[in-house]
Amino acid sequence: MRKLVLENRNTAAEKYLDTMPCTRGECEILRKWDRRNDIGSVGAVLFDRWFAAGGTEQAFDEVVRELGPKIHQRLGEIQYVVRDGRKIPLHGGPPSSGVYNLINMDWQRQEVRDGSSFIFAVEYADKACPTAYTLMAPTRPDLYSQKKWRKGALCR
């Protein structure tokens, strides 16, 4: 489960992208896209916005117009927060696209509305004492994009 949450797979793209109507030249971006919402992924924002808008050709045209040249940029260049004057790229995506690493952006204000700020996973490999793993969004800006789990026992 720890891997699944942070692998940033876009399950909506995996399931629907190949059947969605896309005949424009800009569709090549989505054909080359890795179907992930990693900070280096090109096409993630285009798909997420298009899918949320209904996935029609008309919706595609509107999203392409709205995003303009940003459709060619990596996710981390578009989806970020600013802390202490620094842009911090964010991996993850909206729940509407089936991305388990949740990031909901307010695109007008370039702010995160909500997202995966605390994740808790429990492993029951040892029946006597399960192992807990936690991941929290840190307060230090230089640590935002890291995926570091803290491990601990739930009993002594």
Rank of each mutant, 00 (worst) to 15 (best):
E66P: 08
T134F: 09
A52W: 04
Y16C: 03
S145R: 03
C155H: 05
A44P: 02
L143D: 10
I88G: 08
E57H: 07
E77W: 05
R9Q: 15
E111Q: 11
R109I: 00
T23R: 01
E28K: 11
L6A: 14
V5L: 12
F51C: 09
E77S: 12
R31C: 07
C27W: 04
Y133H: 13
G25R: 03
Y16R: 14
I88A: 07
R36C: 02
P130Y: 12
T56K: 02
K127P: 10
Y144G: 14
E66F: 07
P94I: 03
M20E: 00
N10P: 02
Q146D: 15
G85S: 01
C27V: 01
P141Y: 11
D126F: 13
W50F: 07
L75E: 00
E14C: 05
R113C: 11
L67C: 08
V64C: 04
A121L: 10
V81T: 11
F60K: 01
G25A: 12
L4E: 15
R86Q: 11
G152V: 12
N37R: 00
F118Y: 10
M105H: 02
I39P: 06
N8W: 01
G152I: 11
V64S: 04
R109E: 15
D84C: 10
K32G: 10
K3H: 12
S41C: 06
E28A: 04
G93C: 07
T139M: 00
I71L: 10
K127N: 08
K151N: 08
K87I: 08
V122L: 06
D126S: 11
F118A: 03
V45E: 09
E111S: 09
L135I: 13
K70Q: 10
G55Y: 06
G98S: 14
S41E: 01
N8Y: 07
L17G: 02
G98I: 13
K147L: 15
T139K: 03
S96G: 05
D106R: 03
L154S: 05
Q146I: 06
A121Q: 04
F118H: 08
V81H: 08
F47I: 00
L154A: 02
R2E: 12
N8T: 11
A125Y: 03
R74E: 08
Y16L: 14
Q110H: 13
G68M: 09
K15Q: 09
V122N: 05
V63N: 04
Y144H: 12
P21L: 12
L30F: 02
W107G: 07
F47C: 08
S41A: 03
A121R: 05
R36Q: 06
D126A: 08
A59V: 01
G93S: 02
W149N: 00
D114P: 14
F120G: 07
R113N: 06
G92R: 06
E111V: 15
L6H: 12
Q146P: 01
D38E: 13
R36W: 04
G55V: 00
R86H: 14
K3A: 14
G92I: 00
C129A: 09
R49H: 00
A153H: 13
R83W: 07
G92V: 01
C27Q: 04
E57M: 03
F51M: 10
W149D: 00
G68F: 15
Q110W: 11
Y133L: 07
A121W: 14
D106W: 02
P95I: 15
A121I: 15
D106H: 02
